[in-house]
Amino acid sequence: MGPESVAASPTSDAVPGLPEYAPRPFLLQDRRQETSDTVTLTLVPADGGTVPSFRPGQFNMVYAFGVGEVAISISGDPTRDGPLVHTIRAVGKVSTALTRLRPGDVVGIRGPYGQGWPIDAAEGKDVVVVAGGLGLAPLRPVLYELIGHRSRYGRVEIVFGARSPADLLYYSEVQEWRRRTDLRLQVTVDSADRSWYGDVGVVTQRLPDTRFDASRAVAFVCGPEIMMRFVAQALEARGLAEDAVWLSMERNMKCAIAQCGHCQYGPLFICREGPVLSYRRLKPLLAWKEL
């Protein structure tokens, strides 16, 4: 495939002449160990072409040759042209294979897919970002955007929770953000030993301490579903409207194009209508058990 074959379409970057399902080879440039089971991969197109642009919150199907494919959100900087960045936790067969790759290896990429965070709707408003564990990965592009165009937004409050200090992603970057005076970032862990001098407690415990004007604020929340449920309830209690709170949902995905049926969540295909959805739409569905 020559460089002429990589003209990026806005929503997808499928190889011309091949079905949407066919991945495009990307070269692994850099691999960074984030935690014991999580790595951040930096990828460039193997054909020398351009990296497709994406909106914060969108995801790609990432393919390990001979193993399979898995949906991974994009964690890079949307405000500048750069390599593709994915942060991946070794959970299943495919994600484990992806975390074991070394620079020089090749993976397949198709995407980006899905609806991202409604960043435009946040302009001129206070922004509350709540991330739990790996949930920071799809929110990092939001932080790049907020920081990159800081004057477009009101107060920025970030709460980042993880299970333990050893589970904190992007540690040095988070420390940098904490030092900024134009935003507030609280980090909390569920439990810690004596070497940790930061906050201990679940993310919801930090929310009363966030400051925002509920009448003109939006919240972007990503983490385990149960955490998002508690956080959304707490934000609602703080006066945020249901359609000002946005969650990124996760479901099993095989195709990413609303055809395999796996990611259905009530009437929604998480891959197509999501993964980012308003709490207004999700609230009635979150009440169903095992949906």
């Binding site: 993880a162 299970r163 679940v202 919801t204 415990q205 508690f230």
Partner: peptide, 17 residues
């Protein structure tokens, strides 16, 4: 009650893999 809620959330180990 808030402490209890938070302890329950901790108990669920929401970040558990």
């Amino acid at each position: 009650a808030k402490r209890l809620d938070e302890a329950r959330i901790q108990l669920v180990d929401i970040h558990g893999t």
